[in-house]
Design a protein around this nucleic acid. Structure first.
Length: 476
DNA sequence: GCGATCAGCT
DNA sequence: CACAGCTGATCGC
C-alpha cells in the first residue's frame, strides 16, 4: 500500500511518514478551525471550475430524471452490466435515444434491476448536507470526548487497523467498533452489512457518518443512530469534506453500497473498494444473470412438477434482492417476508420492489427467509406452519462461498440436497463486480492506490490483491 | 432487565 | 474460509 510516493507505488505496506495508526505524521486534520477558511476556498475552487472530473474520470452527474426510463423494456432484464456501463464511462452511442430499447445501457442499480428510480430519493441528502463548516464542529465534539474516555477505559478496546484509514486524511472507513479513533474526524460507511457497520449503535457520538442516502436511512432506522450524526451523500457527486474531495460511486454490491473516491489536496487519488472481493476469487464466479436464470428455471421446473411447491430464497438483511425479484417477476407472484425485512425493503424506496412485497405468507409461493432458516430442519418445521397450503419446499441459498467447494462454473452440475419434502440448492451468487469489470475500471480510473478492506485479514491475500492492483496500474 | 461484548457455529 | 450473520453466556449498568 504505497501511497505517499505518488506515481511509483513501492513495496511498503504504507508510507513511512504515517504514524503507528496509519495516519500521516504531518497533522492534516483541520480541527483547529482551519476547515472553514482553507476548506471553503478549496471547495469553492472546485465548485467554481464546474466540472473538474479529470482525475476522477467519471461522468459528470446527470439529473436522475434524465437517466430513468432508459431500459425496462426487456422484460425482467436482470443482467448485471459492467461497471463501465454502471458508471456511464463508456457510453453506447445512442444511449438516451430510444426509451427502453437499449438493454446495454445501465447507469445505476435501479436500471440494472429494472426498477424505476424513485423520484424522492435525492431528498435525503438535503437534510444533513455535509460541509466543511459542519465537519469542523464535529472535530470539536470528538476532541472533548477523547479525554473523558481515556479515564474509564477498560484498555480492552480494539485498535483501528491501518487499512481502515485513508492516508493523508482524518478519515476512516467502516471503522465503528473501535470507539473514537484517534485523529479521525469523519467516519465513512460503505454499506449496510453487519461486519461493516459493527459498533454503530444509538449511542454513537464520535463524529459524522458519511454514507449513501439509502445506507443512511438504514442506519437511522435499524440502529437508531442519532440523525445529527448521519450524513447522506448522493452518488456521483463530488463533496468537499474536511478539505478533501470525496465522491461516492455505485459499487454494484448490496443496495446502498458505495465505492469511495478520495482526491486529496496534493492531487493524490485513492479508490476505496470495500465492496470488492479478491480478484482471483471473483474470476471463478459465473455471471449473476446466469445464476438468476438458473434459479428461475429451476423454480419453474419444480412448480410444474408440484404446483404446491413453496419457493424459498435465503438472504441476510440486505442483498440478494435481484434473485427473488427475478422469481417474483417470472412467476408473477408477490414476495412474502417477515415484518422486519419488509420494513427494510420498503425503505429502499424502489417502487417495483415495494409493490411486490406481501405480508400474507399463504398468499404467495415465494418466501424470503433469513439464511439461517434455510436448512432442512427449519424448513420442514416452516412448511408445517403453513397449514397444508404447500406440499414441498424448494429453497435457494445464494452465497458467495458455496461455490468454492462445489461445481465450477457449470450451474447445471449443482446437486441439490433433498430430505423428504425439502430440497435445497446452494448457488454461487456473488454480489461483487466481476474480475474483468474491476480490472477495467481500476485501469481506467488509475487511482494512485486502491484501498481494499475486505480480505485484508491475512497478509497473504492482502499482498496478492495489492500485487494485482499494482499490475493493473502499471500497465499502459 | 437491557445492552454490549465475546465465543462458538455456520 | 467470510461477500454475514446467528445464538447463548457473561458482565456491567
Amino acid at each position: 500500500m504505497a501511497a505517499a510516493d505518488g506515481e511509483t507505488p513501492g513495496p511498503l505496506p504504507f508510507p513511512a511518514d504515517l504514524d503507528e495508526n496509519g495516519f500521516p505524521a504531518v497533522p492534516s486534520s483541520p480541527a483547529a478551525g482551519s476547515s472553514d477558511g482553507g476548506g471553503s476556498s478549496f471547495a469553492a475552487d472546485f465548485y467554481r471550475s464546474g466540472t473538474d472530473w479529470s482525475a476522477l474520470r467519471a461522468r459528470p452527474s446527470l439529473p436522475p430524471e434524465a437517466e430513468s426510463g432508459v431500459k425496462e423494456k426487456g422484460g425482467g432484464s436482470l443482467r448485471q452490466k459492467s461497471l463501465f456501463q454502471a458508471w456511464g464511462i463508456k457510453r453506447p452511442p445512442r444511449e438516451g435515444a430510444g426509451a427502453g430499447d437499449s438493454p446495454l445501457v445501465q447507469k445505476s442499480l435501479f436500471q440494472a434491476w429494472g426498477i424505476e428510480r424513485p423520484r424522492g430519493e435525492a431528498v435525503g441528502a438535503a437534510d444533513a448536507s455535509p460541509s466543511p463548516s459542519h465537519s469542523g464542529s464535529w472535530s470539536a465534539r470528538k476532541r472533548r470526548r477523547g479525554g473523558v474516555e481515556e479515564a474509564g477505559e477498560v484498555k480492552k478496546t480494539l485498535t483501528c487497523p491501518f487499512y481502515k484509514k485513508i492516508p493523508g486524511t482524518p478519515f476512516t472507513v467502516d471503522a465503528f467498533r473501535y470507539g473514537e479513533v484517534e485523529g479521525c474526524s469523519a467516519y465513512f460507511l460503505t454499506h449496510f452489512h453487519h461486519d461493516h457497520y459493527g459498533g454503530l449503535t444509538k449511542k454513537w457520538c464520535h463524529g459524522p457518518i458519511y454514507c449513501s442516502a439509502l445506507t443512511a436511512r438504514l442506519v437511522k432506522m435499524c440502529l437508531s443512530v442519532d440523525s445529527e450524526y448521519v450524513c447522506p451523500l448522493e452518488l456521483d457527486t463530488e463533496y468537499i469534506i474536511e478539505g478533501v474531495s470525496v465522491t461516492l460511486l455505485e459499487a454494484n454490491h448490496c443496495p446502498g453500497a458505495a465505492l469511495i473516491h478520495f482526491r486529496l489536496n496534493d492531487g493524490k487519488t485513492y479508490l476505496h473498494t470495500d465492496c470488492f472481493a479478491e480478484p482471483l476469487i471473483l474470476s471463478r464466479f459465473p455471471p449473476q444473470e446466469e445464476v438468476i436464470d438458473f434459479v428461475v428455471r429451476t423454480a419453474q421446473r419444480y412448480l410444474r412438477k408440484q404446483p404446491k411447491t413453496l419457493i424459498v430464497v435465503g438472504a441476510y438483511s440486505i442483498g440478494k434482492e435481484n434473485v427473488y425479484l427475478a422469481i417474483s417477476r417470472a412467476l408473477e407472484v408477490p414476495i412474502y417476508t417477515d415484518a422486519s425485512r419488509r420494513r427494510i425493503l420498503q425503505s429502499f424506496g424502489w417502487p417495483d420492489l415495494s409493490k411486490r412485497i406481501s405480508s400474507c405468507n399463504e398468499s404467495s409461493p415465494l418466501h424470503v427467509l433469513p439464511l439461517g432458516a434455510v436448512n432442512h430442519e427449519s424448513l420442514k418445521k416452516y412448511l408445517e406452519t403453513l397449514n397444508q397450503k404447500f406440499l414441498a419446499v424448494l429453497a435457494f441459498r445464494p452465497t458467495g462461498w458455496s461455490f468454492s467447494e462445489a461445481t465450477g462454473k457449470e450451474l447445471d452440475l449443482i446437486k441439490p440436497k433433498s430430505n423428504g419434502r425439502v430440497t435445497i440448492y446452494g448457488v454461487p451468487y456473488s454480489e461483487h463486480s466481476s474480475f474483468t469489470e474491476l480490472r477495467d475500471f481500476v485501469m481506467f480510473l488509475r487511482p494512485q492506490k486502491v484501498i481494499p478492506t475486505v480480505n485484508v485479514g491475512n497478509a497473504a491475500s492482502r499482498d496478492r490483491m495489492q500485487a494485482c492492483f499494482r499490475e493493473w496500474l502499471k500497465a499502459l
